[in-house]
Nucleic acid binder design. Structure first.
Lengths: 69, 69
DNA sequence: ACTTATTGATACCCTAAGGTTACATTTAGT
DNA sequence: ACTAAATGTAACCTTAGGGTATCAATAAGT
């Protein structure tokens, strides 16, 4: 049983919405570091943060976060 | 900035699928404790685990996990 | 009533997440 | 070229998540 990793399309959605990492962070109430580390794939976010990001872009969580392998 | 909490409908879906907590845990490769603590709302799961649970029941993450307030 | 399955909760341990701050680098605007 | 904005990292700290193991309490079957 090997654990899957997580990929994300935050950067794509940020670009579409013309938001900086800091903008998005402020919009959902987390630190810029949190957005950055999630976006570059260093940390796996909590479900609450995933829902906040998805809701902000008005898309399902699965549209932004995907399980790998 | 008040942080939202998380509610879930894991129990409902487990019941529909006639799965025990242990069954679901085994099916997605986590411990029973993990399912139990998430289900009773004590812990907020990682996005990976939320995706695994949603995928197992073939529903969107938002169908199982909801932000509160 | 008895037995088994299931659930809730605990203690313990270890690692990851997320916050603050700071700094270097890269990108964009002028 | 210069300046300002945006990004990537890092150190440091605190808390939460998730694992194993265990036990009590409840639910379900017989």
């Amino acid at each position: 049983m090997h654990k899957p990793t997580l990929s994300n399309r935050i950067r794509v959605y940020r670009a579409e919405h013309r938001l900086s990492q800091a903008d998005l962070a402020a919009a959902i109430g987390v630190s810029r570091k949190t957005i950055n580390t999630i976006e570059v794939g260093r940390f796996v976010p909590s479900t609450i943060i995933a829902l906040l990001i998805a809701r902000h872009f008005e898309v399902p969580v699965e549209e932004i976060f995907s399980l790998q392998r």
